[in-house]
Amino acid sequence: MNGHLLAAGITAAVVAAVHLAAGHVDPVRPLLASTLPQVPKRTLHAVWHLVSADLVLAAAALLYLALVQPPGTPLAGLLLAVHFAAYTAVFLAVTSTFDGAWRLLRLPQWLLLLPVAVLAWIGST
């Protein structure tokens, strides 16, 4: 068993759960209640569901890699680390556009995504 990949998988599962619970309440409900035209509104709603599926599948993959350690585990773990690092970078880039000293906490999702990237990277080396 690979402890770092297991920790990454568990953390990723928590991230997915937070996304599903909090994400539905905070961004999705206001989006669906907005006056945006239907096509962009439904496209953004679909993207939210795509991210949900992506987070769940990535968590499952990390848990599988940790517990089974099939051939190619280091490469797959590294790719998942890069995947979560990319998510982290996107949130940091977007949240850095806010004004104020606490701008990095306006969209704190990167604080949940970064540990998955680090743990997966350590587990894949």
Rank of each mutant, 00 (worst) to 15 (best):
L63E: 01
L119K: 12
R106F: 09
Q69P: 01
L65V: 00
R106W: 01
L92Q: 14
Y64A: 14
A46Y: 13
L75R: 13
L62E: 00
L114P: 06
G100R: 11
A85P: 01
A89C: 11
D54R: 09
A117I: 06
L50I: 08
P108I: 14
A89F: 07
R103T: 08
P70T: 00
L50H: 09
R106L: 07
P37H: 05
V116L: 01
I122P: 00
A53Y: 14
G77S: 08
Q69R: 15
L63H: 03
A101P: 13
V82F: 08
H49L: 05
T88I: 12
D54T: 01
L65T: 01
R106A: 14
S96N: 15
P70R: 12
D99L: 14
A120T: 12
P37M: 01
A85W: 10
T97Y: 13
V56T: 10
R103M: 03
Q69V: 04
P40F: 01
Y64S: 08
A59S: 09
A60Q: 00
V118P: 06
T95R: 05
V118Q: 05
T73H: 00
G123D: 11
G100S: 04
W48H: 05
A117C: 11
A58W: 03
T88Y: 11
L62A: 02
A46E: 11
P108Y: 12
H83G: 08
L105Q: 02
K41V: 03
L112P: 03
V116K: 04
L111N: 08
W48K: 03
L111V: 14
P71R: 07
L107K: 09
I122Y: 11
K41E: 07
V47G: 04
L75W: 13
W121G: 14
Q69T: 09
R103S: 05
T73L: 02
A61N: 00
L57M: 13
D54Y: 11
P70A: 12
A66T: 06
P37E: 14
A85N: 10
W110F: 05
A46C: 03
T97C: 13
H45N: 12
H45G: 11
G72D: 00
L44K: 05
L111R: 10
R103D: 09
L79R: 13
H49S: 01
L105T: 09
F91K: 09
L80T: 12
L92R: 15
